[in-house]
């Protein structure tokens, strides 16, 4: 017989947890399942009850076409080339008489093929004019894959489902725009305060203004 030698076992024994009453683990397992049964289950019955989706949900991409300048950044950045954009140029007459004629891009077609789209959101990230938005809308399944290419009118409709941006966390940093505006306002206020405090001591005032500019 080539059984493992008995002195092999004690080395593994200390690493084991001290054994409780035999079967207590089994009983604990039973208790867990029984307790779960008495609790209310968390299932949301979707078709009957609409899911409460967070505002940043990546459901579908909406197009705010008034903002679109046909810069094509989104189409070029799209990793799987699912955005189709057609446009033409129009010439706009000069705003003031004698001025120069301007040309501008007019959007003819903007379509996203959601059968290809992988919901990475890069197009939304790169859009410099805030023309693309995430919407939590998700019920747009079709019976034919070709019908998943949605045109600009449909994308524009989805804009109405885009929720307001969520409020910031209480401890979050201020948005950059507000921070910049605040900084500018603070500077202005400091300048005015300095200007108001300046007149009485004339020689000191010249020094401070010189440093400031």
């Amino acid at each position: 017989m080539s059984l493992p030698s008995p002195d092999h076992h004690p080395s593994t024994a200390p690493s084991r947890r001290p054994r409780a009453f035999p079967g207590s683990g089994l009983a604990k397992g039973l208790a867990v399942t029984l307790r779960t049964m008495t609790r209310k289950s968390v299932t949301a019955q979707y078709p009957d009850a609409q899911p409460d989706l967070p505002p940043r949900t990546r459901g579908v991409i909406g197009l705010f076409e008034e903002n679109c300048t046909v810069c094509m950044l989104c189409a070029r950045e799209c990793p799987d080339w699912c955005i189709y954009i057609d446009s033409h140029k129009e010439t706009v007459p000069p705003a003031a008489p004698g001025g120069r004629e301007r040309s501008r891009n007019v959007l003819d077609r903007f379509a996203i093929d959601f059968a290809l789209c992988m919901y990475c959101g890069i197009c939304i990230e790169v859009c410099p004019f805030d023309a693309l938005f995430w919407s939590p809308e998700f019920e747009y399944a079709e019976t034919d894959i070709r019908e998943l290419t949605h045109e600009r009118d449909k994308l524009r409709e989805w804009m109405w489902t885009v929720p307001e941006p969520p409020a910031l966390d209480p401890a979050a940093e201020e948005p950059k725009e507000i921070a910049a505006a605040q900084k500018a306002a603070d500077k202005l206020a400091a300048q005015q305060a300095a200007a108001a405090a300046a007149p009485p001591p004339a020689d000191n005032a010249a020094d401070t203004t010189g440093e400031e500019t």
Binding site: T33, L34, T36, M37, R39, S41, V42, T43, Q45
Partner: peptide
């Protein structure tokens, strides 16, 4: 039903 509720689900509804 029992299995569903023990797993925090609802089962057939």
């Amino acid at each position: 039903k029992v299995m569903a509720h023990m797993q925090g689900r609802l089962g057939p509804m």
